[in-house]
Design a protein around this nucleic acid. Structure first.
Lengths: 193, 193
DNA sequence: CGCGACGTTGATTTGCCTCAACGATTGTGG
DNA sequence: CCACAATCGTTGAGGCAAATCAACGTCGCG
């Protein structure tokens, strides 16, 4: 077993060898070059995507300023899908783009539904994944209320050191709801102490 | 069939009459008076809660200022549970309190797991519910980046008119990440135009 | 080498907060 | 049934965290 997605599923649900084969066959590998788009706003998110290796950014384009607002990053062993667009097969308001060369596993919407029908245990798997993600989104909303810019940055460094290491600062700033300039000043201040 | 929870489940999954009976039996009704707590921070969220009628607020207490920061509201036919505390049966950082007299359906954690084992279709139901909630949390994060305070309030009024009608303004202000005073000024300004 | 992507720095501005005080309602106990 | 206290919303004055704008280094890469 060298499929990281199956490994992740097995952390949360039991699958028979036959089910593992069936699930494995549903997914296909794809490689994105740096700068390639996985999803553009206005398009339908046609696949559910699991990152094997690399880094992606999901962002919203601010209609007034034209600037990117980072919704999330996705690196190894995490998901990068516009859930709402994928589930309804409606056009998306987000963009997903590769920050570096990135390997993915993909499944299209029809296969996804069929896979869930064949292997109902995966309903449980995705429920559990979503529970964890929901909790992290709620925490992010609260931290944005309670913490100031510096505290958010410190918390980010502690919580996501791998992300901090491979994502440019101006994108981290956007994720953390502050300007790149202000993040720079925070970092300068911390140098001294 | 006069159980709103079962009705909601049937919108998303099929259940046999036997399953409906089984599920129905798992939940018990509870009534909270105005001001009663469903959950206090530090306690474990022992039940999953579905609101039949009434209104609740979920909030975080800011350690520095001592003020409540609204995480969400829950009114008729919506959920009010600290997902993270419930799933791990660990202590919660949030509080949930009744704004008015509120009727709930509740299920404890052991029964919840047992119910899912007996009726696997509910794994799908909760997955679908969480997908929708995840999408709304992501949208909330993006709107907080892109919209200014007035735009957030206008959007809130359009999106949740029922909430706007029954929740005091100072709590709406907290939910929308602005001070009660500033929301008051926004409303005054809108009177004129 | 030259260009684009990224980070930094300074000067200035601003959206929103904080604090404090004051109506307007509501409900509640004497 | 009224007095009085909460609770909620509003208003004014002053202040600050962070944004914006502009300019300038610096590094990696075609």
């Amino acid at each position: 077993m060298n499929n990281p997605l199956i490994a992740d599923m097995l952390k949360h649900v039991k699958l028979t060898p036959a089910e593992i084969d069936l699930v494995t066959a549903c997914w296909t590998e794809k490689i994105l070059g740096k700068g390639d788009y996985l999803l553009r706003n206005g398009d339908i998110c046609r696949t559910d995507n699991f990152v094997l290796a690399g880094a992606l950014k999901a962002f919203y384009i601010n209609g007034d300023t034209g600037k990117e607002e980072i919704l999330y990053f996705a690196i190894d062993l995490w998901w990068a899908t516009d859930i709402d667009s994928f589930r309804k097969q409606q056009s998306s308001i987000y963009n997903i783009q590769a920050l570096v060369t990135t390997r993915l596993l993909q499944i299209n919407h029809i296969s996804f539904e069929e896979m869930l029908k064949q292997v109902p245990a995966l309903e449980r798997y995705f429920r559990i994944i979503l529970e964890g993600y929901t909790a992290s989104l709620q925490r992010r909303i609260i931290l944005n209320k309670v913490y100031d810019a510096e505290q958010r940055y410190v918390d980010f460094l502690a919580r996501y050191p791998q992300l901090a290491a491979q994502v440019p600062l101006y994108l981290i700033a956007s994720y953390l709801d502050m300007s790149a300039e202000f993040l720079s000043r925070i970092r300068k201040k911390q140098d001294i102490s």
